[in-house]
Simulated scan of single mutants.
Amino acid sequence: MTQDVIVRACRRPGVLSMQFQPIIDTARGTVVGYESLARFSGPPHTTPDRWFAVARAAGVGPELEARALRAALDARSALPPNCFLSINIGPDALLTAAVATVFADAGDLRGIVVEITEQTAVANYDALAAAIEPLRAAGALLAVDDAGAGFASLKHITVLRPDFVKVDRDLVAGIDKDETKAAVVEALGMFTSRLDAWLVAEGIETTAELDRILSLRVPLAQGYGIGSPQPMMGKAHSDAVALCRRRRSIAAYGGLFDLAEHAPHVSEIEAAPTSFARNPATAWVVVVDEHDRPVRLVDRRGGAHPPLNVLPTERLADVARRIATRPTDERHVPAVLCDERARLVGLVTVERVLGRLADTIDSGSSPT
């Protein structure tokens, strides 16, 4: 494709439109904001990031970003009450007159979050800070995208002092099965809280990923598993909202319960294979009786295991001892967390029990 073709494509009327993805408050399960995302109608038929990349290569990147920015700001009138609108802009484009003019024309920027995208390295932080200053003066907040990857380094965060830090999708993907990723996200949460900023987990696609993010107490989240981008500013998926609210009620028990993982359950062991087929990422299915009390755990190979049921009143040290005294071939089986009536709440892996035990020892507190 020649440069002239690229330039004409970027300037073509109707080629650009905006969609909006919900961002939820994980503690309440309510939508508190939206990220505006550019969408393009080809030709060329390619992804939005590729459109912006070829526009930059052709020398019209700032012009295209300014168009997308104006389209996003024009959508403010549709923003629901008490919600913010996050708008993506590249660090280079933010330094251009075209983008500065769009922001100046917008006037009051309260309710707008300017999200610095991870496209190019920042060559001059002083210039970038100077460009951000009038936006903050007009009421805008600042977000740094893709923390933990590429150019979004800790220096990027500490120099810009954003109000929001968005976790890179690569750290979220499969976080329910990777304790190293969970540890990094947890560390980012501590880091951002010291900066008086909000951590946002983006790119959440599965219930298990959302459940692990909730257990880490990440305050804000978005992704296709929560709500896909739409032309209208709509609601989050009902199952994601329900999981957030359920997790909040579980965490009220304290102790290990804030680590509880979602556990699919069936009333008959013969139904376990169907549950596994519906949920390819599921490692365990719980068999419950007519009162929702766990009676068996089933693994993906069909093995049935007696549950180690944990009630809210049990001390952490006692749970660890019970795990240690199980038969050797059963020690890898998750503990089953139950409410005060012994009804299923969720599962907690042995690794997470040990991690919590280590945390209490490091802090010098009693392992309750």
Rank of each mutant, 00 (worst) to 15 (best):
P334V: 01
G302C: 03
G90Q: 03
L128W: 13
P13T: 00
G189S: 04
R39T: 12
D339S: 11
D25C: 15
E65T: 07
S267N: 14
A100C: 06
L210K: 10
E202K: 12
Q21D: 08
T101Q: 13
L69C: 06
A242Q: 15
T2I: 12
R169F: 13
A57H: 14
Q230I: 03
E340P: 00
H265R: 11
A127Y: 12
G303Q: 05
R322H: 10
A72D: 02
V295N: 10
F151E: 13
E205R: 11
N279A: 15
P367F: 12
I250H: 12
L135V: 10
R300H: 05
L308N: 02
V31P: 01
S365D: 13
L210S: 08
P273Y: 02
A66G: 09
V298L: 06
P294H: 07
G107L: 05
M190S: 14
A129Q: 14
A106E: 03
A127E: 15
P334I: 08
R11Y: 10
E205C: 07
A152R: 03
T192G: 14
F52A: 11
A66W: 10
F84D: 01
S41M: 08
D176G: 11
L195F: 02
E35D: 09
V114T: 12
Y34S: 11
C338V: 15
D362S: 07
V165P: 00
C83W: 08
G59R: 06
V266F: 11
E118W: 02
G223Y: 00
L216Y: 02
A98Y: 03
S275L: 13
T26A: 09
G234I: 07
G59L: 03
L297G: 00
T274A: 15
L188W: 07
T328C: 00
A277N: 13
E268C: 14
V60H: 05
A271K: 07
I250S: 11
A123D: 15
T96H: 08
L135C: 09
Q119D: 11
E205N: 00
D168W: 10
V60K: 05
T96P: 02
A9K: 01
D292Y: 04
C83E: 07
E290L: 08
